[in-house]
Design a protein around this nucleic acid. Structure first.
Lengths: 339, 339
DNA sequence: TGTTCTACGTAGAACGGTGCACAGAATCGC
DNA sequence: GCGATTCTGTGCACCGTTCTACGTAGAACA
């Protein structure tokens, strides 16, 4: 009856302490390489840890100290520009001994919010948000509870959290200038729709601002910006009729590869030649844009650096920095046959 | 001097208990809607929770009970077939009240291992692994510590964890049969390289098995399987010379879009017409394959269903099931102009 | 009226760590 | 050789939950 099966107990800090013949506190100190342990004791404890294959419980740790875990909140897992950013984050975080866990916000505000709450509840040490949809106000609120660094959301006046961005308005200007230099004068922009006035801090509106000012600067008249509802199933159809219609400009600056690649595909399917009939420059320089069969010119915002800088910022804030820090790097155009 | 700034204390279960005028245990019961609470007390507590905006600490929870959090381990964040699987996982998990946190294993064994350990240490309730590189032995070991369900790794004899897969050998057969039905007889396969005999449980070897048996079944002689080291920087060059060389078959079955899309691109760049000079069928039916400019035929393995089934399995195991469960679903061919 | 059940609520011990206050040993300065 | 000062290591309270055991009040029963 009574199965003498000693349940394979988790090896805890107490097990180690006993095995090494020291106090629990001593083991804790060694784990955190805190001050006040002799080399002898340290070695002794490390041996026991090795022998017993001990790993501290994150949960228990979080209750008083740090968990050495960072959270990353993604817009959506299918954003082609994510892998780079993530690689940047991971390199810095790992080098500093931090682990990473991610959550997917699905570009859905309540979901992003609940993710952040969950990360707070898991006692993570800090959060990197990528292209968050969350309003600045909400972000301020969360940032009071946990250090946050944001990528792809301009909020240069925010006090409680840090931001890291490629200069989106400048990137748009560079794109327009490149088109102008090639001789195009009838230049339009496809932006993210629908337009929401309170989102001016997001990347798309910033690119619109840069676009408009570059158009004006070049003396090309009133800027033409087109929007297609990004949640609309009929979107592809709308793009098609836009390209077929009389309003189609000679050259298009597209706010993201996310739209640029479908537009390029639709255009070619309609028999339009790129760039002979329609010149295109998009944004993000995702791997798909680089495929020879696509070959779409695109602004590169160096995802890796964005990730690294954001993580640097986050770690220094975890380290105690109070003043906000807002970093801006310059994007650069990757030239391809589409313009 | 003495800034009367009461540190915005976290609202804990004690705060709620005090506010509602009941015991801590009562609040806990309400949170878990456990047995033994009157409706009156329940309402009272719920009100306080609402008013104080209380959320239980995951970490503290994990120390004794469940955390209602599932971990997802990904191969790499850039795998085009991931978003679907993830969507499937998320839908089932959320419906059951579970949260999800992900980690990226980067197709790197030690990293996968450390991720799993971290998830165990965070007291997660279970883990879904997607296309894990981990050996079966290691997986057995971890599965004794935490419920695990694996997608994209065939291990039909595993006892301690569950697996969910699309039938990869059957998928390969379907592809070959489709090629044969079109009249192709000189059919080769591009598989994942290098060949490692102990990986037979992975998807690529399974597809090789299906391919070989379909070739034999069709009476097409000895199966020809080509491999290109997937970590090699010179890989694209090797593919190019393969396509230019005399060994190029008339039709190719490619183990994944990951390779199929570059092959298609290289081929067209070389001036080869697809399918007139070279017919192609790949695997995974990723969104890129569906782009009109690519239009690559590909086996669809219904990522969503895989994700859902794996999560179902995981939840039922968390619920107490002991016997292993190994699910196999059928893939289907998405026909496009590439063959 | 007294006894047994049932339903509700509570006290208090876990859980596995961290970090503070402190004691004893070792080292130092003179 | 002695007090003062570091250096090590320990004991213990604490973090925010869950969960077991138990007390109590009221209903049901005899």
């Amino acid at each position: 009856m009574n199965e003498a099966k000693p349940p394979p107990q988790r090896v805890t800090i107490r097990t180690v302490a006993e095995d090494a013949g020291v106090s629990v506190a001593a083991v804790s100190k060694v784990m955190r390489n805190a001050y006040g342990v002799s080399e002898a004791l340290r070695q002794n404890v490390l041996e026991s840890i090795e022998r017993l294959n001990y790993r501290p419980s994150n949960a228990a740790r979080g209750m008083r100290g740090q968990t050495y875990t960072l959270g990353v909140v993604l817009v959506g897992i299918d954003n082609p520009f994510l892998p780079q950013v993530f690689a940047g984050i991971a390199s810095v975080a790992n080098a500093a001994g931090y682990k990473i866990l991610m959550g997917v916000g699905a570009a859905h505000m309540p979901m992003e919010a609940s993710l952040i709450e969950q990360m707070i509840d898991s006692h993570m040490d800090g959060i990197v948000m990528i292209a968050a949809q969350l309003s600045g106000k909400l972000m301020e609120k969360y940032a009071r509870q946990i250090p946050i660094a944001v990528i792809g959301h301009h909020e240069p006046l925010a006090q409680t959290f840090d931001t890291v961005n490629a200069n989106d308005s400048h990137g748009a200007k560079l794109a327009v200038r490149a088109l102008v230099a090639k001789g195009y004068r009838d230049i339009g922009m496809v932006s993210l729709g629908p337009y929401r006035p309170h989102d001016t801090y997001d990347v798309a509106p910033q690119r619109e601002i840069g676009f408009a000012s570059a158009i004006v600067e070049a003396g090309l008249g009133a800027p033409k910006i087109f929007r297609f509802d990004n949640m609309d199933d009929a979107r592809l159809g709308k793009i098609t009729s836009f390209l077929a219609g009389p309003d189609r400009p000679r050259a298009l600056f597209v706010w993201s590869d996310l739209d640029g690649i479908p537009i390029l595909n639709v255009a070619r399917q309609m028999g339009l030649h790129v760039p002979e009939d329609l010149a295109l420059i998009a944004y993000d320089n995702s791997p798909v844009a680089a495929l020879p069969l696509i070959d779409l010119a695109s602004m590169d915002q160096s995802g890796i650096r964005l990730g690294q800088l954001a993580t640097d910022a986050l770690l220094s804030r975890i380290g105690g920095r109070k003043a906000a820090q807002h970093v801006l790097i310059d994007p650069s155009l990757t030239i391809r046959s589409s313009f």
